[in-house]
Write a protein that binds this DNA or RNA. Structure first.
Lengths: 148, 148
DNA sequence: TCAAAAAGTTAGCCATGGCTAAATTAGTTG
DNA sequence: CAACTAATTTAGCCATGGCTAACTTTTTGA
């Protein structure tokens, strides 16, 4: 049997699952761990809700959870979380390029990110790259926005 | 009292409410009316669910509904529906410009449209206009996409 | 006109993903 | 090491927005 060349991602995750995974990865990256209380504070939801979801994510194989102890992302969970994070960052960069306010960007990305398919991600990626090479066009866009 | 110069839009609508209003306006524009059965078929949900929501939209003042008879958007409902439709069309046009497939566009717009605030709408509008004046840049973007 | 079909409604159910309150476990500290 | 505190878990609830099945109203056509 040949070595696997890619990681199998779960079929389709809900927006809630994606939000949890994204935040868990971020906590692990910044604090080194992600406790229930940390996740709850970060997502501004109750600890009870977090416990529930964490148990579900364990059942789905996206993380390993030991009751009262702690959790760690599985390979699949981490791969998924990285994908989600990359998409989030790309969208944020793109809207930033257009000159939008940080709070607007935060709000809109938070809502949109779960609904953008890989082809659209690639398209926005390509567009962002080209826009960065055409500052003059961006200047015009920002001026148009301000004039409204 | 001076004449009102603008229509008061409801505070904030759920994604479901927005989907209903958008589809109802579309049906009225194309068929001249929007029956429960039409809405149900168009949104691919049951007639029972539509009846429920239509009664709720009536209670919220977004449309006038007469049991067993029919419905008509109120001024507020139509204004909201037009806004939603305009945002939907703008997003579709934008993604089309990037060269994405119609089914991808349909899927992504359907998901994203409810999460994009007015400033971002304006920004994408301005960007779309500028991109239309720079076909060369769009060609490059589409080439980048294809190369991936 | 009147019976069958189509449309609409109601009742009751389900899943998702929140919540609070109360119970339990783990960690800390005098 | 006991007791207090913080963290976690459980139980039970709620809202949203779907569903099916059964019933009612409206429309249609022989």
């Amino acid at each position: 049997m040949p070595a696997p060349t890619s990681i199998r991602l779960p079929a389709r995750s809900s927006a809630a699952v994606e939000d949890y995974l994204e935040r868990i990865l971020e906590l692990i990256n910044t604090k080194g761990y992600a406790r229930v209380v940390d996740i709850a504070q970060s997502l501004k939801i109750s600890q009870a809700s977090v416990t529930n979801m964490v148990q579900r994510l364990d059942a789905e194989g996206l993380l390993k959870y030991e009751k009262y102890r702690g959790l760690a992302l599985t390979t699949a969970g981490e791969a998924l979380a990285r994908n989600i994070t990359r998409r989030h960052q790309l969208l944020t960069d793109f809207l930033k390029l257009l000159g939008l306010d940080d709070d607007v960007i935060y709000h809109d990305v938070e809502g949109m990110e779960h609904h953008i398919s890989p082809p659209t991600v690639r398209a926005i990626e390509a567009l962002t790259e080209q826009l960065q090479r055409h500052p003059a066009l961006l200047v015009k866009v920002r001026k148009d926005i301000d004039e409204n």
